[in-house]
Design a protein around this nucleic acid. Structure first.
Length: 310
RNA sequence: ACGAAUACUCUCCC
């Protein structure tokens, strides 16, 4: 469980240390431990390491299961190696392992991300034919692909199909639609979507608000940006580092340095890391406002973080 | 029984 924690945080050094300790104390890691480590390397895109661990596991007599395979499949998909991932899927089948909905969803996502929507849709039919029914994740993935291609109508068709099959949209499903509306400047539709999801009992999260707040912010509507920032907190949605970075950028561009400074300090209090671009925005904003002292302070904070100004 | 795996937002412009 601890190795899993380190792996999920990308802290592979600590994870490896613990793993080595396990081995030295004669504790045999099981497939769950290996999976956690393999996943950690997959998330870093270090597929060579991931595969060598997988092979090490096999050498130790542990039989790979659907999850260990799915972890690798997903890792390959994330770096765009969908063909290799597909080969792995075939290997699974020959070993008598039945891919599950997670396996297929990884593949569908991989195909979508390399722009092969046609193949992704085909896979959706294939999985259904083999008795693995596409779920909310499958539909949401495909909807996102359509939306990002500018084919929102197709995305909505999928939403209808999904609802017809009795699947419930998740917060991510709504987020996909929200992002599509906002990116195309349809902020009123975004606001309506926000109301609709609340009515449906789906609680928005920081991501939901980040999409809409970002677009209001880009469009220099800082009044609505601030209103929504307050509204989300009133609803119990906790802003994340992205929310703050979006707001800081917006306020700096609008020359609202007081507000930007306030948010900057709030971030530090909450332990969020300020993005490099936010640091740059703050420095530029303060300099333009003839506030070299504040600019200097931000500059020094930035250096302490090991970041270089542009 | 419980425990490991997959989708969306920031990160370059809009």
């Amino acid at each position: 469980a601890i190795i899993c924690g380190f792996s999920q945080n990308g802290n592979m050094l600590e994870a490896e240390k613990l793993f080595a300790k396990m081995l030295s104390q004669g504790v045999q890691p099981d497939e769950v431990t290996y999976s956690a480590l393999v996943d950690g390397y997959c998330k870093l895109g270090e597929m060579k390491k991931a595969f060598s661990l997988h092979n090490q596991m096999v050498r130790h007599g542990i039989v790979p299961n659907v999850i260990t395979y799915t972890t690798l499949t997903d890792g390959l998909c994330k770096i765009g190696e969908v063909d290799t991932a597909n080969e792995l899927l075939q290997e699974m089948l020959t070993k008598g392992l039945k891919p599950n909905v997670w396996t297929y969803n990884s593949m569908v996502n991989g195909l979508c991300k390399v722009g092969n929507l046609a193949q992704a849709l085909k896979l959706k039919e294939e999985m259904a034919a083999s008795g693995i029914h596409p779920d909310t994740v499958t539909y949401t993935t495909l909807m996102d692909a359509y939306c990002k291609m500018g084919e929102m109508d197709k995305g909505k068709e999928l939403l209808q199909e999904m609802l017809k099959r009795g699947l419930r949209p998740s917060v991510v499903t709504f987020n996909v639609l929200m992002n599509a509306f906002c990116l195309s400047g349809r902020l009123e539709d975004g606001e309506r979507l926000l109301e609709w999801m609340l009515k449906k009992g789906v609680m928005p999260n920081a991501t939901t608000y980040n999409s809409i707040v970002k677009q209001y912010s880009i469009r220099k509507n800082m009044r609505r940006t601030t209103e929504l920032f307050r509204a989300m907190q009133a609803e119990g949605v906790v802003p994340d580092a992205n929310t703050y970075n979006i707001l800081i950028r917006g306020h700096c561009k609008a020359r609202n340095m007081k507000e930007a400074w306030f948010l900057y300090k709030a971030m530090a209090e909450k332990g969020f890391s300020v993005s490099a671009s936010s640091y740059n925005d703050l420095i530029k904003g303060f300099l333009k406002r003839k506030k070299p002292l504040e600019a200097r302070k931000v500059f020094e904070d930035m250096r302490k973080e090991g970041l270089a100004p542009d």
